[in-house]
Design a protein around this nucleic acid. Structure first.
Lengths: 359, 359
DNA sequence: CTGAAAGCGCTTACAG
DNA sequence: CTGAAAGCGCTTACAG
């Protein structure tokens, strides 16, 4: 009779404490341990207590790989953001990650560089890990990306944007039929924010308000739409006041744009930059060039990034709720993962115009 | 005789194409497919070709969970950084992630908030995922963290710091005996950088040079040591010139520190901030307060972060090679993962004093 | 409510 | 160099 020295022929040693160990120590079957540990109902409360205690005592930690293999679902959540050089997305990432981690999920970050094919590639790689859910910036994705997402059946929440306001439900809309609640998303109305800031500038008596933008991603273009809308409403729209530069946003570019704008059109009395880094760069350049802000030209930004309140003069900007977006999106995703239905599939967290001395 | 309709009793459908499918299509055993795909030598080159072709044709993608479970090693790499609000670490993260991803590894990021017990907790969580390797900021870790790392046997490279220069090998050093090559790390000598910047200020004729620091993490304290060393060498060391604030680094704090320093000691003619965000904040505050830089007081920073060249006046600072550190550390880790021995276990990537107009 | 058994999709001794 | 078989540590139909 073989005893402790007997081993299966192909034994591969691994020191790990397994679910089986817990089951033996607790005197129940592995199935029961599995159910108890995952909080599945339909387990005797006394057994749950016993299993929990034994598991705690042995220091048992479930193996994520085994769990993922057996259940076809990992504890990973994918988050796709465009850029790490824009502080906006760093804040978003940190907030989302904090909430997800608290719920026991690992965050897998991907940086798309505002490139839809990079996005698709990242998504494809991540999907191989069978994520439990995904958080994706924006609502604009290539058709094949959308197909990938749909086919994967992985719950998904979109960040920082909301779909256009929908008219009354019309049947026969293929997209809406496929997703009866619309895409899940948490953000705010970029177009409204663009319009609101423009209205602020108009209220300050500005007559020639430039919209100066870089990167030109979809959300920037929506802010542009808001600017257009406000100006058109007063018959003040002039396409030569649009300065659109596809280069990445940066302090240096903001300075350059200010210089070019003022050189070409001295009558400009306000510039609305699509992001704070551009506006901060413009403020710094104004100092260098001896342009007085806001007397000669008012400067406004977007996002209220770090440092905007420290500028001289302090920057008027739109405060966007990215930390709240990150957290709320994580919570919504957790609901979806647990099979619940979010109360507000499209969650609007709003924005705030922060008036400082630069306008 | 059962045919295509027959199924095992407990079949769980999953559409996935498996290694078995490839094996059947290629007419070889699963073991051979496994070996061929992982590039294990000792497989007939012709078979490798065949397997690769079939696998490509079927669009086979190995299941990471199954692979991790069977091999006891995942394709995850852990990276632990202190803060996402310091652009330094964002650059580091992005560079490391890029290299790791190119080599087929997934990055799992953890943010320690400069807190050694948070670090330990994060490490513990990550270790449950059996990472293939880890990248950890700094060389200072709690004893239990060090124990965790050692016991895990997971290859590890430390970032942004180097151990003190060692004297001649003396046997009996327990730490060195445990790790004959020393800890693997990629960084530069923080103390030398602190000393070099101080020497630059001295060369500019500055007599009362403040060292102003926040956060006070180990690397900041090494820069302080460098500052002390340079001043002591000239008998100019004065402890009242040390301004150490444990609060997190920020633009606002830099401005505040400038104000307080100048108020308390008008004779100060230079301030060396331990990080660029503080220095940038000081530059902005100087403008507000009407303090002329560098005439009244010279300002120097550390790291050459975004925007330092855009300040007015542009900021003199220490350019640190964080992107290179991230990449080189990733490469070193990949070597360790593959069982190779890095040529330089402690890789010094140096630094550069960037002289602009603020000093 | 509980358990025995099969299965998830790989890797890796072991034998040839 | 190749293959059959066992095993990694879980989850989940299925049966009771």
């Amino acid at each position: 009779m073989k005893t402790f020295n007997s081993r299966p022929k192909h034994h591969r040693s691994t020191g790990r404490i397994t679910l089986n160990d817990v089951a033996q120590a607790a005197g129940v079957s592995p199935s029961t341990v599995s159910r108890a540990l995952r909080g599945e109902r339909a387990v005797d409360p006394d057994l749950v207590q016993r299993v929990l205690a034994v598991s705690e005592k042995l220091g048992y930690v479930p193996d994520p790989a085994a769990r993922a293999l057996a259940s076809q679902r990992s504890d990973h959540v994918t988050i796709l953001i465009p850029m790490l050089t824009n502080a906006l997305f760093v804040d978003l990432l940190e907030a989302a990650q904090r909430s997800l981690r608290a719920a026991g999920f690992q965050t897998l970050m991907g940086v798309t560089h505002y490139n839809t094919s990079e996005e698709e590639q990242l998504l494809r790689e991540q999907l191989h890990h069978r994520p439990a859910g995904m958080l994706i910036t924006g609502l604009d994705h290539s058709p094949s990306t959308q197909k990938l997402m749909a086919r994967s059946k992985v719950p998904c929440v979109h960040l920082m944007d909301l779909p256009e306001e929908l008219g009354p439900i019309s049947s026969g809309d293929a997209e809406r039929d496929a997703m009866p609640n619309g895409p899940y998303c948490v953000g705010f109305r970029q177009i409204d924010a663009g319009e609101a800031m423009t209205n602020h500038l108009l209220a300050k008596g500005k007559k020639r308000i430039v919209f100066a933008a870089a990167q030109l991603d979809p959300r920037v273009m929506q802010r542009l739409q808001g600017w257009r809308k406000a100006l058109k409403a007063r018959q003040m729209y002039d396409p030569t006041l649009e300065w659109l530069n596809p280069a990445p946003s940066s302090l240096a570019l903001g300075g350059l744009m200010l210089e070019q704008i003022m050189k070409q059109n001295a009558a400009v009395d306000a510039i609305f930059f699509c992001n704070d880094d551009l506006a901060q760069g413009a403020l710094l350049a104004a100092m260098r060039l001896g342009i007085s802000v806001p007397q000669q030209v008012a400067i406004a930004g977007f996002n209220d990034l770090t440092g905007s309140d420290q500028m001289w003069p302090p920057l008027t900007t739109v405060r966007t709720p990215r930390a709240q977006v990150g957290e709320a999106a994580a919570q919504m995703l957790l609901q979806l993962i647990h099979g619940e239905t979010p109360e507000h599939p499209q969650l609007d967290l709003g924005f705030e115009i922060v008036v400082r001395q630069s306008t």
